[in-house]
Computed example of a mutant assay.
Amino acid sequence: MYAKQYEITLPADYNMGIIRRRVAGSGSALDDRAGLGLKAYLIQERGVAGASVNQYAPFYLWTDIGAMGRFLVGGAGFQNIIRDFGRPAVHHWMGVAAVAGPARAATPRAASRLVAALPANQARLTHPTDGGEDDDQTSRVAAEIERLTNLARHEDVHTAVLALDPRHWQLVRFVLWRDGASVDAEATETYEVLHLSAPHLPDLPRGRAW
């Protein structure tokens, strides 16, 4: 499993109806894409749900890295983004864990994201509440997987994912929600989901990815 996301920040007066129409017209193009676990078509709209910017920020989970490569540089879709918006930086993370929530059968309408550093001396993504620290990286990641699993038990969770950028030592926690994402109080970003393509959702790992 491999996660990626690009963020296209748009002018403050941009008409986000353009993005909504874009997704409504072409979002289904990846509904049967080989090697794609899911693509969530995400937006933030300035002034809505606390968003300070207009942004189009799709999030992907790939089951096949070769398929991701074909999408990015093999002429299988990403050229349309480059044509219309220029070439954005693509954040990418190796998958650590994926958990199906009780709302997996529903259509997600919101998403939350938490990206945080994994310093050598920090026990959790957020400040520990038990007053202790654990210097073992394996234990820290295991604790985050447990936190992810606990969060995924919420009745509105569709899918919850934990992934790692081992260059910058960052963890990303991404959650799809049936309704609002306000339940995830730790999230640094929340999004509206315009469409979900999930042709190989069942092929994502269940729990820890190794």
Rank of each mutant, 00 (worst) to 15 (best):
A49Q: 09
A34K: 11
T138A: 11
V99K: 11
L164M: 02
H195Y: 02
F78N: 02
G69K: 10
R87V: 01
R83G: 09
S26R: 12
A29T: 14
Q122C: 00
G17I: 03
L30S: 13
G77K: 04
T149W: 00
Y191N: 03
A103K: 10
L196H: 09
R70S: 15
A181N: 04
Y191W: 06
V161A: 08
E192P: 08
L204A: 05
F174Y: 15
A117S: 06
G27E: 05
E7T: 14
G207N: 00
A34D: 15
A181T: 02
A67L: 08
E155D: 13
M1I: 14
L176A: 06
G47Y: 06
W93T: 00
M16C: 04
S139F: 08
N150A: 15
N15L: 04
D203L: 13
W177Q: 07
V96H: 01
H91K: 15
D136S: 01
N150H: 10
S139C: 07
H168Q: 11
M94T: 13
D179Y: 11
A106Y: 10
R33Q: 15
A12Q: 01
A3M: 14
T149R: 09
R153A: 12
W169K: 02
G180K: 03
W177Y: 06
G180T: 12
L118S: 05
D136Y: 00
R21Q: 13
E189N: 13
I43L: 04
D130M: 03
G207D: 03
P202F: 04
G69I: 10
L30N: 14
I81V: 13
I65E: 14
V157F: 08
R178S: 10
G27V: 03
H158V: 15
A185N: 10
Q79M: 13
G101Q: 00
K39Q: 11
Q5E: 10
P205S: 00
H92R: 11
G95M: 05
A152F: 03
Y6Q: 05
Q44F: 02
G101F: 01
G27L: 04
Y14W: 00
R109S: 13
P166M: 02
G35K: 08
H91I: 05
Q137K: 07
D64T: 10
L148H: 07
G77F: 07
A106D: 14
G207Q: 07
H158D: 14
A106V: 11
M16D: 01
S28K: 14
R147C: 09
